[in-house]
């Protein structure tokens, strides 16, 4: 007979039932997320406000059983339940959910001497765990998405997890205890008013930090796509760096229509510096014949040097975001956007 298990039968049953509940409710929670998206008026993203509801069951399982490893087990099992119920994320949800479980375990049992239900660790565990879903999904399906978007979404999820995993979970556990469904009634204390204020304060602080950070980021750190300067290099006497504002006296306005393979922009006015003038600043060496215009992403188009030097209608225009070649009498593929380098060959 063997009765010395780390997890008692009751622990295991608790894990299974909360996983079943969380997994069974995942469609409902997804639906709530969509409702929020609709309220806010975005196609996706705002639903992360409900991300905390996905982790609440994991935090509850840990809070109820108070055993190391319960978070991981609940996360894994909940993911399996969602997989078997035919969720919309397939096997990826198992990874997402497992990571969430591991994080809850890792954070709540960092200080294993502490047994109390405390708001701060629960909130952080909930927050981090909820936010992790954004990163896991990004790793799988949204690589290359700007970091700012990931930050915004994960902050939303974090705040949601903070509230649901912390305050709401503790409220739920208190309620279970009052209803006689929690075993360890060691302490007869409700979430005191001060804790409630603390939780609101924490939320406010995070929201403020998040907003201020976001605004600061957008204004100062976040560089809009596009180069700040155009380098003229290659077969030239002296390399020249063109920045918007240079050679302003030569600025002209041309009218052109863009005709490409699939795209078409009807005739309109563009203002900029003739490419000729920019190249001449760098003094192309004798024998050079080609102008290769290269964009930041590596895309390029090659012009005939002589043709450019004789043609004032090819200009480099700047629209506050990026440099672009306007070449009215050329095919659309010559209209290089986000120009970074002009190489004389």
């Amino acid at each position: 007979m063997d009765n010395n298990y780390h997890f008692s039968t009751k622990d295991l049953v608790t894990i299974a039932l909360l996983s079943a509940l969380g997994g069974g409710l995942s469609t409902y929670i997804g639906y709530l997320g969509n409702l929020i998206n609709r309220m806010v008026g975005v196609p996706f993203g705002a639903g992360q406000f409900m991300a905390g509801l996905h982790v609440i069951w994991i935090v509850l399982a840990v809070g109820i059983t108070k055993k190391k490893g319960v978070g991981t087990a609940t996360g894994l099992l909940k993911g399996m339940v969602e997989l078997f119920l035919g969720g919309t994320h397939g096997v990826v949800i198992v990874v997402v959910s497992l990571v969430q479980g591991v994080l809850v375990d890792a954070i709540l049992f960092k200080d294993s001497t502490k047994e109390d239900r405390a708001l701060i660790p629960y909130s952080i565990a909930g927050g981090v765990s909820a936010a992790s879903n954004v990163f896991v999904f990004q790793a799988f399906f949204f690589s290359g998405v700007p970091i700012i978007l990931i930050m915004v979404l994960s902050m939303l999820a974090f705040v949601s997890g903070l509230i649901f995993g912390g305050y709401v979970t503790l409220q739920m556990m208190d309620s279970l205890e009052q209803g006689g469904l929690l075993d360890r009634s060691l302490k007869k204390e409700k979430v005191p008013r001060s804790t409630r204020y603390a939780s609101i304060a924490v939320t406010v602080i995070f929201l403020t930090a998040f907003t201020v950070g976001g605004v600061y980021y957008l204004h100062n750190v976040y560089v809009p796509p596009g180069a700040e300067e155009v380098n003229v290099v290659g077969e030239v006497e002296r390399e020249y760096v063109f920045t918007h504002g240079d050679l302003e006296e030569q600025e002209i306005t041309v009218s052109a229509e863009l005709v490409g393979e699939v795209s078409y922009v009807p005739e309109k006015n563009y203002t900029g510096i003739p490419l000729r003038a920019i190249i001449q600043e760098a003094e192309p060496v004798e024998g050079a014949s080609k102008v290769r215009v290269i964009a930041t992403d590596g895309y390029d188009a090659v012009f005939n040097l002589n043709e450019v030097l004789e043609n004032d209608s090819i200009i480099l225009s700047y629209d506050e975001v990026e440099y672009m070649i306007v070449a009215g009498d050329h095919h659309g593929s010559y209209w290089v956007r986000d120009v970074h380098e002009i190489r004389i060959e």
Partner: peptide, 18 residues
Amino acid sequence: YRFSFLLILAMRFAPIFQ
């Protein structure tokens, strides 16, 4: 088996909760 059985257990109750 105590762990692997949890999958059966959870899958029995998930539809009930739904």
